[in-house]
């Protein structure tokens, strides 16, 4: 085997980029749908804007098997402990999409019982505006999450349990 054979048959990469490639193309979302955005999220999964094209079609309703939390809908003050618990049950690495006006900022529900933005309690990576957002908006945010994963460093996770 000469040098040229090796060049055309061997692909070199770093472990980091290989892991990031794997992670970003097989996101397992965990939908936390509490309102109409949850219904719209079903449309994201359906045939018209099929997120299986991005490798994210494996919806798991169990937080321990998923790495992308999609919070869709208004979160009341009584629901927040549940959401925090689900977030904490998800294994690292994990990402969060806040879908729609209510989850991101409270929307029209400026009352004492609705959380004015879930980022007061859990870290959010991407916000999607809209009431509810169009499926394309959610796909766009999914692509933003993929960009985030691409820039991830393995050393960020070494020897630390928290981000």
């Amino acid at each position: 085997m000469n040098h040229n054979d090796i060049k055309s048959n061997v692909l070199t990469t770093t472990l980091e980029s290989a892991i990031n490639w794997g992670r970003k193309n097989s996101l397992w979302p965990m939908p936390f749908g509490t309102a109409c955005c949850g219904i719209e999220f079903m449309a994201v999964l359906a045939a018209r804007t099929d997120i299986a094209r991005f490798g994210a079609e494996a919806i798991r309703f169990s937080p321990r098997q998923s790495d992308l939390l999609i919070v869709a809908g208004r979160i009341s003050i009584k629901m927040m402990p549940v959401l925090i618990r689900i977030y904490e049950q998800m294994p690292e690495p994990k990402w969060v999409i806040s879908m729609g006006a209510c989850a991101s900022s409270g929307g029209v529900f400026d009352t004492y019982s609705v959380i004015q933005g879930i980022d007061q309690f859990i870290p959010v990576d991407v916000y999607v505006p809209g009431c509810p957002p169009r499926p394309e908006g959610v796909v766009e945010s999914l692509m933003k999450i993929q960009n985030l994963i691409d820039k991830e460093k393995l050393s960020d996770y070494a020897l630390s349990s928290s981000k």
Binding site: E136, G137, E140
Partner: peptide
Amino acid sequence: IYDFSNYSRDDL
């Protein structure tokens, strides 16, 4: 325009 999202609340 319907497809837009961002990384932080301030940028929106």
